[in-house]
């Protein structure tokens, strides 16, 4: 028989290394001789979109077109350390470092421009330096040339503000910032085979501010797929410290056919310490999926499973046991 059920899962999640561990990102913003912006960061792009987002943050902070920003990363001989691509920390931590370096570079550009134009009230707008009191303008290339053909470079450094929690009082600031989400799923359980099918899902994710909504959606889809695998497929089958399911024939991950459509609700509640209000969501989008799926299975067939993955064999066993 096929039975349907709904389940929900909600989490709050502390991003970054946490507990006072030095969580530092560094960035260098540079105006090169062509009048283009280069951002140097040791952040690693693993598909999560750091490269895209960090360039956007720099462009926004400087008020220049994103097309003239080049992100130079992953080369430790020329980039400063931006910490690991882990702990959902690159958008927030390295984003802040990039923003600081870009703001510092902007100040420097304005200083050079003031000298050239003999004017006091200048700003950069869409890549052009403009005077607020006259119609004089300068290009970024003019600034690059005026600074002796050399490069203008500015550092940015950001450290997340966390402290260890006092075990006695429970006081402290173990993570910063936190992010919150909720998943809803509908499943269909085949009580003859034990197979669980996800019919549809919805995710609402607090992102602080979505710097790139399309990437946020991609992270939600990917996170749900990982959570789905975690909930019902992926079993490394450890035996005396050895992984027995070490190939895709027995370590199953979701395929396109296993994935439902996901309704994505991006909740924007700007984080005051984040770059333009943003915070990281890489891990959070995965975590709530498994509890939501297990809750939906409970709703569908009335058995409460507490061990993952809920493979068809385990589910059938639990159903049998209940019938007793």
């Amino acid at each position: 028989m096929k039975k349907r059920g709904f389940g929900y899962g909600c989490i709050f999640y502390g991003t970054g290394y946490g507990n006072g561990f030095p969580d530092i990102s560094r960035s260098i913003a540079e105006l090169d001789t062509k009048g283009h912006i280069n951002i140097y960061v040791g952040a690693t792009e693993v598909g999560q979109g750091a490269k895209t987002i960090l360039g956007q943050i720099a462009a926004e902070a400087l008020d220049v077109p994103v097309e003239i920003v080049t992100l130079i990363h992953e080369d430790t001989s020329i980039t400063p350390d931006a910490g690991t691509a882990a702990a959902s920390r690159q958008t927030y931590n390295t984003g802040n470092a990039v923003k600081i370096s870009a703001e510092e570079l902007k100040k420097e550009i304005i200083v050079v421009a003031k000298g050239l134009l003999n004017e006091d009230h200048l700003e950069i707008s869409n890549g052009v330096i403009r005077s607020n009191t006259s119609d004089k303008t300068l290009t970024l290339k003019d600034i690059a040339e005026a600074s002796g053909g050399g490069f203008l470079r500015k550092d940015g450094i950001f450290q997340a503000n966390t402290t260890e929690m006092d075990p006695e009082t429970g006081q402290g600031n173990p993570y910063w910032p936190y992010t919150i989400n909720a998943y809803a799923v509908e499943v269909e359980v085949d009580t003859t085979t034990g197979i669980v099918d996800i019919i549809r899902a919805a995710c609402s994710q607090d992102v602080g501010r979505a710097i790139n909504p399309s990437l946020v959606e991609g992270q939600i889809d990917g996170g749900f797929a990982m959570g789905l695998g975690y909930a019902i497929f992926e079993d490394i089958n450890l035996d005396k410290g050895r992984i027995k399911h070490n190939r895709f024939t027995n370590y199953l991950i979701p395929t396109a056919l296993d994935m439902p459509e996901i309704e994505k609700i991006i909740v924007e509640d700007p984080e005051s310490t984040g770059p333009f209000g943003a915070k990281g969501i890489g891990e959070p989008v995965m975590i709530a999926a498994a509890p939501a799926i297990l809750n939906a299975i409970y709703d569908a067939v009335g058995v409460r499973l507490t061990e993952i993955p809920v493979t068809p064999e385990k589910l059938l066993k639990a159903l049998k046991k209940r019938e007793g």
């Binding site: 598909g47 959606e217 991609g218 939600i220 889809d221 990917g222 996170g223 749900f224 797929a225 990982m226 895709f248 991950i253 979701p254 395929t255 396109a256 056919l257 994935m259 459509e261 996901i262």
Partner: peptide
């Protein structure tokens, strides 16, 4: 595309 595994995207945008 069911014979092509993807660890990152959750397939929907593909």
């Amino acid at each position: 595309i069911s014979g092509n595994l993807c660890r990152c995207t959750g397939y929907n945008k593909i």
